[in-house]
């Protein structure tokens, strides 16, 4: 298991390095001179040249890339263009809001998607299966922002059960949780459908397996077979899907944070792009990429924990 974990982590580090390379090339290739943007229209050529050399923009590309990577590894993502605060500090201030929302969305998706998928598989072909099937496809098809707006109208404006905007009072856990419900539902709703479909399909496949027949032939209770014997295997593709899904949810957080006026990485990136605050964009994207890679390494480790065959193939 240790060797497996190390390999996964090594792969993760490589992916982050590649991501850095892509990010760096993008900044490098974007038209427009960051120094002249930072100094504004009335800057003299001397001032621009001076800032350029201070920002290291005159160095050769490889040196610039090396500086970028080495300082990023040390946690230095530069300072943001407008306020001059360190990018990492600004990003880390916003990150918890987004993480809380993504985590909450996954909770929705897992808590509803897995049982629905199991029920659909067990009642295959029946009325319940068909209802779950139609609902799953429906929630996958409806765009999240539509869900967000209608949920907002219904639960916040009309019924007044839940707050419409913001992240809740700081220090008040209940109010923060209440503020999480709607945005995370908007982001996670489609994923309930995805997971229900995936669990149903892999459950049906697993229930056909010979070892399930063996378990039945030994008279194990059906519920036990489904939840202890079949689900352990049927859940594996879902774990992988969730790892990938986190990336999708992170990008969905942009709209959710704007519609619900929540703080978070999505909103931060949106505002940074509107104000051409490139160091902030780079820093935020790098942090979310690292987070995404980390989650996928975690997903692989969880699969290794659940499936001894995967562990064995790496030893």
């Amino acid at each position: 298991m240790f060797a497996y974990a190390m390999r996964r982590l090594g792969l993760g580090a490589t992916i982050i390095l590649v991501a850095m390379m892509i990010l760096f090339s993008m900044i490098y290739l974007i038209p427009g001179d960051p120094a002249s943007v930072a100094l504004g229209p009335r800057a003299t050529p001397e001032m621009i040249a001076e800032l350029r050399s201070r920002m290291g923009l005159d160095d050769p590309v490889l040196v610039q890339f090396w500086n970028f990577v080495s300082s990023a590894v040390q946690g230095n993502l530069g300072v943001e263009a407008l306020s001059g605060r360190p990018v990492l500090t600004v990003v880390m201030e916003q990150l918890p809001f987004t993480l809380a929302m993504v985590l909450c969305s996954i909770t929705w998706a897992v808590l509803l998607g897995i049982p629905l998928g199991c029920i659909a598989a067990v009642k295959r072909g029946g009325f319940v299966d068909r209802v779950i099937g139609v609902l799953s496809v429906a929630v996958i098809a409806v765009p999240s922002f539509v869900v967000a707006i209608y949920a907002l109208l219904l639960f916040a404006v009309h019924l007044k059960w839940l707050p419409a905007i913001g992240a809740g009072e700081s220090g008040n856990l209940k109010s923060q949780l209440m503020a999480l419900i709607l945005p995370s539902l908007a982001v996670g709703l489609g994923w309930i459908g995805y997971i229900a479909r995936l669990v149903r399909a892999s459950m049906l496949e697993t229930l056909e397996a010979g070892h399930i027949r063996t378990a039945r032939a030994f008279g194990l209770p059906e519920r036990w077979i489904i939840y202890n014997y079949a689900l352990r295997i049927a859940i594996l593709p879902t774990v992988t899907l969730l790892g990938v899904g986190i990336g999708h949810m992170l990008s969905s957080s942009v709209f959710a944070e704007i519609v619900f006026a929540r703080p978070g990485i999505g909103k931060l990136v949106y505002e940074a792009i509107s104000t051409r605050n490139y160091p902030l964009v780079t820093g935020a994207v790098l942090v979310t990429t690292a987070f995404f890679v980390l989650v996928n390494v975690l997903a692989d480790l969880v699969i290794g924990l659940l499936d001894p065959r995967v562990r064995a193939s790496f030893n």
């Binding site: 397996a209 063996t214 039945r216 032939a217 008279g219 194990l220 202890n228 352990r232």
Partner: peptide, 28 residues
Amino acid sequence: RGLQISTVFQDPMGALNPVLSVGKQMRD
């Protein structure tokens, strides 16, 4: 089943659950 009638199936590769230890399956 399992008490009065027991069964040994054809395919030994697929007859045991791949993600549970043999001990756990024999205990179950």
